[in-house]
Nucleic acid binder design. Sequence first.
RNA 1: GAUCUGUUAGCUCAGUCGGUAGAGCAACGGCCUUUUAAGCCGUGGGUCUUGGGUUCGAGUCCCAAACAGAUCACCA
Length: 510
Amino acid sequence: MQHLSEQEIIRRQYLEEFKKLGIDPYPAATFDVTTLATQIKEGFDTSPDAFKDIRIAGRIMSKRIMGKASFAEIQDSSGRIQAYINRDLICPGEDKELYNTIFKRLCDIGDFVGLSGYAFRTQTGELSLHVSEFKFLSKSLHPLPVVKVDADGKVHDAFTDPEQRYRKRYVDLIVNPHVKDNFIKRSKLINAMRRYFDDKGWLEVETPVLQAIHGGAAARPFKTHHNALDMPLFLRIANELYLKRLIVGGYDGVYEIGKMFRNEGMDRTHNPEFTSMEIYVAYKDYIWMMEMVEDCLEKIVAEVCGTTITHIGGNEINFAKPYKRLSMFDAIQQYAGIDVSTADENALRSFCKSNKIEIEDSMGWGKLVDAIFSEKVEDNLIQPTYITDYPLEMTPLAKKHRSKEGLVERFELYVNGKEIANAYSELNDPIDQRQRFEEQLKLADRGDEEAMIMDEDFVHALEYGMPPTSGLGIGIDRLTMMITGQEAIQEVLFFPQMKPDLKRADGISE
RNA sequence: GAUCUGUUAGCUCAGUCGGUAGAGCAACGGCCUUUUAAGCCGUGGGUCUUGGGUUCGAGUCCCAAACAGAUCACCA
């Protein structure tokens, strides 16, 4: 038995009263909406005649009843508009039940109504709908948090508890309009990116989420089981190896926007499932890719935000190209003051110790370089910056650098101190690729749970020949965080992963 | 996984030295025909996250658990 509060019981009683009055609280028929709240607000002053006979629909978000006339705020998908509801206008005859009983008593905050009338300004100047017809559309059985904004724009009683907001995102979306805007921006961003790639002639594809061999990234996978085949399957940690097979197959450019799954820790920048965009373009290298990425980001950020400038965590970020380019070694030289290109492993170790950088005995030269980079450099990379040319041992799928020994042709794009993209000149030498996998196997034998495992079919595909290719992955969630100014990934995911709410589960099962 | 903080009415929050559980909004009953954080009068609403313990007595003190947030570790 579900526990109901006083207010919830009363709302259920109203359902019975609707039935007694012969009114369906959940009518089936279409209510033809002609106008959105923001259309009235944006258009009324220039063309008031266009709003003489309009129909709007939405939730009642507030009621201010003054006897025989009332004001209510109606919220639709676009925003809010005030409605002026006069008893004798919606009840022209003797029967005042629609106003006195249905509107004044049985309508609660959160209920849906359809209204028709004309737009006007009240004595205090508030743009409103002068209501001539009133139609009840749907009952809400739970009270909503009532968030009020005063004349100074100060928000009162805001619905802010993150746990409640994430668990009941629908409520969050209803009462916190800026949350809705963030998700609209996310959708527009993905659409703009897709359009950019499509205009270049690259093909959007779909590759398997369920994979027998999980490859393409260093991460621990989720494991599942296929009953009919009686075999284990993994949820993909990356789609890189499949997209490269498609380049082998003869497409010039392929990209996929989709969910990846990694069985690792969760925090404000990690969710177990996240959205990545990976793209592979034939006959290109990572230098070309840097030019493509900065052109793409400049255009789509401008399209979505109306400007290339965004704000996050007190920083102003400008996505206008070109972006600064800095090799990993030069970046370390600049921010940590050590030339790692001439330092051996012992020199790096003593540097880490004297700079209080945590290291482990198992870490090799490459991992030590990475540790210094993470600790000393990352936080300084606020404006979009390409970090290029990484140590080979950390990057088993990238091509060896054309001129720098021990490095690979790779870049990562950093914004606001966070990595949001990763790209290579893709390794297309099948002999080299097999050796790199074998080195990963040795790491796995030593207990590295994130080491890649050999994908024979992928190497076989490369043996048929893959053109020189550049590949890129962008974390869509993180990019969305940058353009919406959010510092938690949970703010750009509708339904971030949460542990079960036992309090609530018990309440339902009783 | 570690540390710290939080969990009280539908929402936002008070709650003193351990002594009958509080406010605003929301709700309910009135009044009010251009209000706007509408207003005025009145009323109801609580397993204080859960389970133990100390105590004559626990929202408050102690222990444990659950969930969340922040910081750290790992990662994208």
